[in-house]
Design a protein around this nucleic acid. Structure first.
Lengths: 214, 214
DNA sequence: GTCTATATTTAGATAGAC
DNA sequence: GTCTATCTAAATATAGAC
């Protein structure tokens, strides 16, 4: 069956990216992971690169769908951090986010990968934007924050942390603790009185103007 | 001359990583970029992998040294953001930080790379720790912050943003603007009165305990 | 749609002349 | 230390039988 083989190849590509990295994937390693003949890579996807690009988007779609419900329940920054930590722990273990990191590395020198990786990242940022909009709704940040920009910063940082975790697990844990502290500080701002919040808004707006000039 | 050839190979390796990525480097592409014979890769470094690891550390040492003076002058979060933005702009253009991203991608499936990349990242985090210690000295964060953890979060996020910039330049700019806003909010905390700062410290400490439990 | 066989290119690595 | 020549393994990709 054609769709079955296509699916096996997509699965096999992710598996190969996980275990071999972007530098080690090949039609043969993918086919071996997929349990199909090597020539089928070219029959179904034309080339290894096209399969990699297709697999990146396919895999990200599935992952994002798996977290959509959980994201939808997030109402506070604390909950968002909690989900982020869960996601980090689970995906560090199964290596699915690392796959995006591998694609991102390949994308630096491959325009076709760049488009696919941008689209895959976009699937995450769309979700993160929605969550951030809710979370920041009644915070001083919410009224002036560049939510799309913040969502991209979160996604990029997350992938950086995911890549870090593999080479320095203790450093990664320390980094996550530090980000929890940062979140606590931001939440604290929500508990301030009206006068302080006005001042906080002013500070943020000033920074916005400053960064626009820069 | 031996040292000359070694240097050419190190230079050539970085150049090859920049233009071909971790997936495209080979003894031949490196030798071509270095302008030396391909066999010299193995004579001087034993293997392509060993050369890549050596080049990652060598290149990072040089880069970090080039920013040490500038880092030393940073006294406020605002200045740190400014230097970070400069660094991002310059290194996006010359692609040197992307090289660390490429090594990080390769490190996910190569233990020897993992050690080299951890060491190279360590060169950055050592500097960032010093700057953060100064910058946070008289902020509520300074007294409870996990500065080493924060430094690693900054380094990892920076590399993530660097990788993002190549696939989504507009998204990358928006992300940097959003981080500027975040910095402004944190600076605002420094301008709070004594009572508010005590409360902020308490909020951060609570978060620390919370994250230790998690 | 799938498999075998194969053409072609490129990779890492080494032997040996200079 | 450097270069040429070369071995071997592995890569992409395709033709053609089934």
């Amino acid at each position: 069956m054609s769709t079955d083989t296509r699916d096996r190849l997509l699965h096999g590509t992710i598996e190969a990216l996980r275990t071999q990295g972007i530098a080690g994937v090949s039609a043969r390693t993918i086919a071996a992971a997929a349990g199909v003949n090597q020539a089928l890579v070219f029959y179904h996807f034309g080339s290894v690169d096209e399969l990699l690009a297709a697999a990146a988007i396919w895999s990200t779609e599935q992952q994002v769908a798996g977290y959509r419900e959980r994201f939808g329940r997030v109402r506070t920054l604390r909950e968002l951090q909690r989900v982020g930590r869960e996601l980090h722990l689970r995906e560090s273990a199964n290596g699915n986010v690392t796959v995006l990191g591998q694609m991102l590395a390949g994308a630096q020198t491959n325009p076709a990968f760049a488009a696919a990786t941008r689209d895959a990242l976009g699937l995450w940022t769309v979700e993160i934007e929605q969550v951030l909009t809710r979370v920041l709704a009644d915070s001083p940040l919410g009224e002036v924050a560049d939510v799309p920009g913040l969502a991209r910063a979160v996604a990029a940082s997350f992938i950086g942390m995911e890549l870090l975790a593999a080479v320095d697990p203790e450093g990664d844990q320390a980094a996550f603790r530090a980000l929890d502290q940062l979140g606590a500080l931001l939440e604290y701002l929500d508990d301030l009185g009206p006068a302080a919040r006005v001042a906080a808004r002013r500070a943020v707006r000033t920074a916005v103007r400053r960064s626009v000039r820069a």
